[in-house]
Design a protein around this nucleic acid. Sequence first.
DNA 1: ATAATACTTGACAAAAACAGTAGGGTTTTA
DNA 2: TAAAACCCTACTGTTTTTGTCAAGTATTAT
Lengths: 159, 159
Amino acid sequence: MLRLSTKGQYGVRAMYEIARGYPETPVTIKEISERQDVSVAYLEQILNKLRKAGLIKSIRGPGGGYVLNRSADKISIASILNELEGPVALTSCLDPEGGCVRIDSCVTHLLWKALGEQVEAFLKTITLKNLMAGDFYALGGMAKKEMRRSIRLKPQSQP
Amino acid sequence: MLRLSTKGQYGVRAMYEIARGYPETPVTIKEISERQDVSVAYLEQILNKLRKAGLIKSIRGPGGGYVLNRSADKISIASILNELEGPVALTSCLDPEGGCVRIDSCVTHLLWKALGEQVEAFLKTITLKNLMAGDFYALGGMAKKEMRRSIRLKPQSQP
DNA sequence: ATAATACTTGACAAAAACAGTAGGGTTTTA
DNA sequence: TAAAACCCTACTGTTTTTGTCAAGTATTAT
Ligand code: FES
Ligand code: FES
């Protein structure tokens, strides 16, 4: 349950590649495509959304590509997924627009709300910088004991 | 993003109704249908799965209905959703069966894994009893400050 | 017995969401 | 002015979701 769409997954991985070039080198779609194994056409759609959202900016023409619009520690995973998949809303009743008539008598509404908020809090604490550094811990969501435990990712060689 | 399917949502609400009858009164599909506004035929599918999973048992014939198979404080929301939507797996790479070739070099894999585990931990701590009592707090997932804050649901009158 | 109640099962179908392609642009630089 | 690179919209095939339908089987009350 709770599958993330490929747009969201690819989006985060694409942002990671762009972050690696920051602030020196614009990263082209082609490069991202090759490194992350996602088609150029599909990436175009994804990066378009992220650009319009102000997370990245594009530089056209030869030597161009994509660059982060602000530093990697100011871009959370939540902000990326929000653009590509919309806000966390475990039920349609929780959609920003979608009202529900049963909402006041519903026994589960606050449960889904609480869970959604927790997920959001988790994703907000993790930035591209955390992702690149390889250690991320959930300030918003984990118990104190867990907070001190960081998870180390395999370092990836720069090509 | 991260929408729960209606099967999962209805399933929890149905279990709540069955829990209300426990241990005295078997609850019929028709009653659940009326109280939770879900079609009888659809509920049949849902309750069938939950029965096969051993969460509830059925009593056939007049006066019959569904009954919890163990007490409400021993049935977590996680166990219900697990039957109806499968295990939490934010990506196909995290599916119990689905292997991924990129898994060792993937920069996001551990991120999705961590988030999934957190969601699972949250749902495991909340039982039908918590849901009925109206106060649930996330032992597994929340910071200490949050843990003390319980969320009170509107009491629902027994018909 | 038998009628009424209630669960059981499998097939099926409409609708929505997803995943991705295709093909035509425009802008910038060398 | 050609090549590199981004920009934009439409479209399509597939899968998942969200149910319905129809024909059972088991149990109880009378
Ligand atoms: S059914 Fe809409 S809030 Fe629960
Ligand atoms: S793509 Fe499969 S683990 Fe990341």
